[in-house]
């Protein structure tokens, strides 16, 4: 199953709300959570990270990973947190409405 367009940002924000992570870990978490349901193109993930950094939702900074390698860590900014909240609300509304429509006979 392919990712629905525009939902990647929301997923990344959600994953980062648990704490700062670097790109590889984010990809790892997403794959772990959704196991094989979603096929994630990792390049798209990195584009999303930089895009959200430009918008001021994330802040990236080089640091050391667990196995002592240089890695770029991303953390949510207060703006990003706000964004996650509002996107979650609108996604829930959207999916509820869509589900209701699809179930209707």
């Amino acid at each position: 199953m392919q990712l629905i367009r525009g939902t990647l940002d929301l997923i990344v924000l959600k994953v980062l709300s648990w704490g700062p992570l670097h790109g590889f870990d984010i990809a790892d978490r997403i794959t772990a959570r959704f196991s094989d349901e979603l096929s994630l193109e990792e390049g798209a993930l990195y584009q999303s990270l930089r895009r959200m950094e430009e918008r001021g939702w994330l802040q990236g900074e080089w640091g050391m990973s667990d196995n002592n390698r240089r890695a770029r860590f991303y953390r949510l900014t207060p703006q990003g947190r706000q964004q996650l909240r509002s996107e979650t609300v609108s996604w829930e509304r959207y999916s509820t409405a869509l589900t209701r429509l699809l179930r209707a006979t």
């Binding site: 193109e41 990792e42 390049g43 798209a44 990195y46 584009q47 930089r50 895009r51 430009e54």
Partner: peptide
């Protein structure tokens, strides 16, 4: 393969970073 097209991603990332 998992990463996809490196050139495209690199370009998109660079553009964002430059703007910022």
């Amino acid at each position: 393969r998992r990463f996809g097209d490196v050139a495209t991603t690199r370009h998109a990332m660079t553009t964002s970073a430059m703007r910022q």
